[in-house]
């Protein structure tokens, strides 16, 4: 199997070719070309096996001057969980002055990543 994948890891945006091969024992391996760095290779293989994405969004607060506070997931999550995680983020209302990197939702949906605050703007 051959697939062309554009790397989204950095602004360079390498266009890579991934070839999936199965050896005699049925073991699957990947050949990646066109990547500038190692991160590209990892990204390309992940794209074929279990694509991962990040989410940046906002959470609602009770503070008049800062009606929403920016947040993101602490590490990439499976691509097909994006809207499920967004639904969780949308349920939150911040009532206390939290700081950058403070955890807003711990282990969101059991994915092993947290939703964290990305700004000190409440302080």
């Amino acid at each position: 199997m051959n697939k062309e994948i554009v790397c989204i890891t950095c602004p360079r945006g390498c266009i890579m070719k991934v070839t999936q091969e199965k050896d005699d024992l049925g073991k699957i391996s990947f050949q990646v070309t066109g990547n500038f760095c190692k991160k590209g290779e990892t990204f390309a293989i992940n794209e074929l096996t279990s694509p991962m994405r990040t989410i940046c969004s906002t959470v609602k607060t009770d503070f008049k001057d800062v009606p929403v506070l920016p947040c993101r997931v602490s590490a990439d999550i499976p691509k097909d969980k994006i809207f499920d995680v967004m639904a969780e983020i949308n349920k939150v209302v911040i009532t206390e002055k939290i700081k950058r990197n403070d955890i807003i939702i711990k282990n969101v949906l059991g994915l092993g990543v947290d939703v964290i605050c990305t700004s000190d703007m409440l302080n």
Binding site: C10, P11, T54, C56, S57, T58, P70, C71, R72, R100, T118, S119, D120, M121
Partner: peptide, 25 residues
């Protein structure tokens, strides 16, 4: 940057994917 809450800032400078507010702060 205050409103650029998406990530991707600071890759060249810090080698990290920061959001706009994180980079600015």
């Amino acid at each position: 940057l205050k409103q650029c809450i998406h990530d991707g800032f600071g890759l060249v400078r810090y080698g990290e994917k920061l959001s706009g507010p994180e980079y600015a702060e």
